[in-house]
Amino acid sequence: MSIIELKNVSFWYGRKTPYEIKALDDISLEIEENSITGLIGHTGSGKSTLVQMLNGILKPDSGTVIVDGQDIWAKPREIGKVRFKVGMVMQYPEYQLFAETVREDIAYGPKNMGLEAEEIEARVSRSIAFCGLTPEILEKSPFDLSGGQKRRVALAGIMAMEPKILVLDEPAAGLDPKGRREILSGIRKYSEESGTSVIIVSHSMEDMAMYCDRVVVMSHARVLANGTCEEVFSNHKMLFDAGLDVPEITSIVLAMRKAGLDIPENIYTVDGAFSALKSLYGKGGQN
């Protein structure tokens, strides 16, 4: 079942001015429930614009956005409610922290939802656990934390709203490899345990291959491909044409094939490559 459906959505920046740019060109797309969808595309392909359509920050110039079976712009005055259903973590979310303590900052979203104090407290503790933070941090000022910790607090602030759909725009940008892994696997765990559908925008093919179930490729304001990781990453030519890359391990596998090694080409994780090589070695030993 699809939880988000875009129908013929188009959007321009600076429409009817000399600086008009078409950011989304007649996009139709379905996002499946209980899955992690990766959204990839080079800079300026329309990824960030697309995700801002999903919670009504931007309004499409034409077409409809259907979230959870409802057209979100059917009642424009109630667009605020959509934002509790679709949680959005913007790029570099650490710059939106403002409260005196981490606890207050994470509670800001749930408070705006009008929840009871006890429920808010419970949600705050749950969300920090998913983000790999410890309760001591709650009384600290968000401005005293390290960059990686700030990022997690900002993420926890959205998770505490417990939206049905969680959208993350480059959640791991600018973090070190360890921070990257922890944040992304935290998101994966959160999605699996809470049944939340997740959309991740990223540049990193490796992260997509590791953490996503499905991948949507965007190029020049259009959707180029939409399928499982295997379907998308095996179409090397399409990715290269869109100015993107295949995961590093896939390039290695492709180079091996070129060198004459009989290894399947639809490999996009290190584990996959490992087992393929092992079976190849096994065969070699027998002969």
């Binding site: 949680g87 973590v89 913007m90 710059y95």
Partner: peptide, 13 residues
């Protein structure tokens, strides 16, 4: 604008 959008996403009115 960026900060406003981010806070709107957290239900700011």
């Amino acid at each position: 604008n960026k900060i406003m959008n981010a806070q709107k996403a957290r239900g700011a009115d």
